[in-house]
């Protein structure tokens, strides 16, 4: 009488367990790595219509963020400057440079420059710039070191865990109001200046849904 099952089937349970573990493990790893804004959004660096360098303007020239983004302290969104703001200097500096052709055209005709938005929250999130910058949250916390970027890149995930990390523990991220736009600022060694601000300004960011989702 011959065997009903060939010999190798003895190893079948082991193969199923090992194979299942490998495939399952790899799938889990792939999902945690790829299905996250840390993968889908971070690193997004579109080619902009004008090759504007934040590194030159903010770092080398030392311009304040608010020279151009002048609505950020008063408004929920941080505005992109109008072409006339660029022309305050570029009517003399690099006056005929071909890289600035679009800016000059926009200044003359009023046609907007088609800047590509990089940091884009979902429409069901109601983020307010002014409340953050006026309570000691620096630009760098969410946008990364923009003052060192020649081309702006999406640096932080801006996913919900990212927001909650700070909302649940704001002390570590708050800084003196005079340093909010100083992206290179570091808290003095061994101090957490935010503790004082959380107390003095009664910072209660909250972590319930309705804080950000209305």
């Amino acid at each position: 009488m011959s065997d009903v099952f060939p010999k190798w089937t003895n190893k079948l349970p082991l193969m199923v367990i090992v194979g299942g573990a490998l495939v399952g493990g790899a799938m889990t790893m792939a999902v945690t790595h790829y299905v996250s804004p840390k993968y889908t959004r971070v690193g997004y660096q579109p080619i902009q219509p004008v090759s504007f360098s934040h590194a030159v303007h903010a770092d080398q020239l030392g311009m304040d963020c608010r020279y151009c983004h002048n609505g950020v302290e008063k408004s929920w969104y941080s505005n992109v400057p109008s072409a006339s703001t660029c022309m305050n200097c570029h009517n003399q500096v690099l006056k005929d440079d071909p890289r600035l052709a679009l800016v000059r055209e926009s200044y003359k005709t009023g046609k907007p420059i088609p800047w590509v938005q990089i940091h884009k929250l979902p429409d069901y999130v109601f983020f307010n710039h002014s409340v953050h910058v006026n309570r000691g949250v620096s630009c760098v916390e969410c946008h990364g070191p923009v003052n060192k970027m020649d081309e702006v890149k999406h640096a932080k995930s801006l996913g919900m865990p990212f927001c909650l990390e700070c909302h649940r523990d704001p002390e570590k991220r708050l800084r003196p109001l005079s340093e909010v736009y100083n992206l290179d600022w570091k808290a003095p060694e061994g101090t957490v200046p935010g503790e004082k601000f959380v107390h003095d300004w009664k910072v209660l960011p909250g972590d319930s849904c309705s804080v950000c989702h209305r």
Partner: peptide, 19 residues
């Protein structure tokens, strides 16, 4: 991997609520 530079806009699946 995470953080790689990409010129293309982020992928958004089921974006009716997002946009």
């Amino acid at each position: 991997k995470q953080g790689d530079v990409s010129r293309k806009p982020p992928i958004e699946i089921f974006d009716d609520m997002v946009r």
